[in-house]
């Protein structure tokens, strides 16, 4: 099963469960009084939470993205060393 199908399956299952419990279109009354009302905005809550989570993760990782100044400096020094050594060995650029 592809990742897309798996994702649609999970969403579908969740959607059906939510609809039966929160909207009760078949009038089965599976849950007592306050619960259907409480569950109704659940998908919206989850969506917003996931959005916030994503923004937080990306923001945090953006802020802590290593700049590698030392590596760049080291490379510059090594480039100089390499050029000298290669010229000594007879490389013509």
């Amino acid at each position: 099963m592809t990742k897309l199908l798996r994702c649609l399956w999970s969403l579908g299952l969740f959607g059906v469960a939510w609809a039966v419990l929160a909207l009760d279109p078949l009038d089965l009354r599976p849950l007592p009084a306050p619960w259907p009302q409480v569950l109704r905005p659940l998908p919206a809550y989850l969506l917003v939470s996931f959005g916030c989570f994503s923004l937080a993760v990306v923001g945090f990782r953006l802020g802590t993205f290593n700049d590698c100044e030392a590596a760049a400096q080291e490379l510059q020094d090594q480039i100089r060393e390499a050029k000298q050594d290669l010229a000594r060995r007879g490389l013509r650029l």
Binding site: V57, V58, R61, L62, F65, N66, C68, A71, A72
Partner: peptide
């Protein structure tokens, strides 16, 4: 860990992080 990038501006880092997420 200690991985990272050098020479990227904020925009490129944001795209990279977003795409990776």
């Amino acid at each position: 860990g200690n991985g990272g990038v050098h020479g990227w501006d904020l925009k490129r880092k944001l795209i990279s992080r977003g795409a990776n997420f």
